[in-house]
Simulated scan of single mutants.
Amino acid sequence: MASNLVSKLFRPPLTQLVCLRSGSLFRGKGAAAAATGTRSSSSGSPPEKISRYPIPYKKDLPYDIVELMEEVESKGGFLPNVFKVLSHRPAEFRAFFAYYNELMNKDTGRLTKADRELIVVATSIHNRCLYCVVSHSALHRIYSKNPTLCDQVIVNYENADLAPRERAMLDFAMAVCRCDTITEQHFKSLEEAGFDREDAWDIAAIAAFFAMSNRLAHLTDMRPNLEFFNLGRIPRDKSKDKAGDGN
């Protein structure tokens, strides 16, 4: 079950990333750091704080959650901190990622994976969520192959180089995010951009789900992995991959 979930949660970005290996979850000295919501640093600097809540020891977590974490880390090269932080409450962890998967990885509707990530970035900016802005900007760069658009959206989406359909999509997402009164004109504007009412539900549901996620990140003081900051900014060197395949 965990294997099926991880393939849906992170396909293809975390399974195709070229990034630094951070090692197995909670190994050695990292175990003590994990219990206090910090992670150790190999440079000798003070450990980086991940959460203000305790992060469980691996041995204390349910098997399905450990299996999911290990597979995500194995395929992606590092374990996003949201997995560690939310494992503090295993039942809610499962519910969170089940709904995340339904919203972000569905194959129906007119929203692309890049569209979905752009909605998360724009609304998370409004909600001042550092973790979601950084992590989902990285995923947008990977899906869209556009390394600069999210940076523009982060500053001001209204001035970003958006296509008309992207602008209509974000206008609607932001209306939901701000709790504006939703009128028929909102739906009409979406329809003029090529979206239908089911797409409107998807846009709104993503904005709503990540409003919750943003606030959990605020509560826990969740910090983004350093690996996220550069993902999708530098083109992948495919010649190295080919050289590795030949050995």
Rank of each mutant, 00 (worst) to 15 (best):
Ala160Gly: 01
Met104Gly: 09
Cys150Thr: 15
Tyr57Phe: 10
Gln152Arg: 01
Glu73Phe: 07
Asn105Cys: 15
Glu198Trp: 06
Thr108Ala: 13
Ala122Arg: 02
Phe93Cys: 08
Thr108His: 06
Asn81Cys: 05
Ala95Leu: 12
Asn127Asp: 10
Gln152Gly: 03
Cys177Asn: 10
Pro80Val: 06
Asn156Gly: 04
Leu139His: 08
Leu170Thr: 09
Asp64Val: 08
Glu198Val: 08
Arg167Cys: 00
Asp115Val: 08
Leu118Pro: 00
Leu118Trp: 07
Val155Leu: 01
Arg94Gln: 15
Ala200Tyr: 02
Tyr131Pro: 01
Asp107Ile: 11
Asp171Lys: 08
Tyr63Ile: 15
Cys132Val: 02
Glu198Ala: 08
Val133Met: 11
Pro164Ala: 08
Val85Glu: 04
Asn159His: 13
Val121Gly: 01
Gln152Tyr: 00
Ala114Asn: 06
Tyr143Arg: 14
Ala173Tyr: 05
Met69Asp: 04
His126Glu: 14
Pro62Arg: 02
Lys145Gly: 15
Arg116Ala: 09
Val72Arg: 04
Ile125Phe: 01
Met174Ser: 03
Leu68Arg: 05
Lys75Gly: 11
Lys188Asp: 14
Asn159Gly: 07
Ile182Ser: 09
Asp64Pro: 05
Tyr143Asp: 14
Thr112Tyr: 05
Ala122Lys: 01
Tyr63Cys: 12
Tyr131Glu: 00
Asn101Val: 12
Cys179Val: 13
Val82Phe: 03
Leu61Ser: 02
Ala175Pro: 06
Val82Ala: 14
Pro90Thr: 10
Lys145Phe: 07
Ala163Thr: 12
Ala114Leu: 09
Val85Ser: 06
Phe78Asn: 07
Leu170Lys: 01
Thr123Asn: 10
Lys75Leu: 13
Leu79Val: 15
His136Asn: 01
Ser135Arg: 07
Glu192Arg: 09
Arg128Gln: 07
Ile154Ala: 07
Ser144Gly: 10
Glu158Gly: 00
Glu191Leu: 07
Ile125Ala: 09
Ala160Ile: 00
Gln185Tyr: 11
Ala95Lys: 08
Asn105Pro: 09
His140Phe: 12
Arg141Thr: 10
His136Lys: 02
Gly77Cys: 13
Ser137Glu: 06
Glu117Gly: 04
Glu198Arg: 14
Leu68Met: 10
Ala122Cys: 03
Arg116Ser: 01
Pro147Leu: 14
Ser189Met: 14
Leu190Ala: 11
Met169Lys: 02
Val85Tyr: 00
Val120Ser: 02
Ser144Trp: 09
His136Thr: 03
Ser144Pro: 01
Arg89Leu: 15
Asn81Ala: 04
Phe96Met: 05
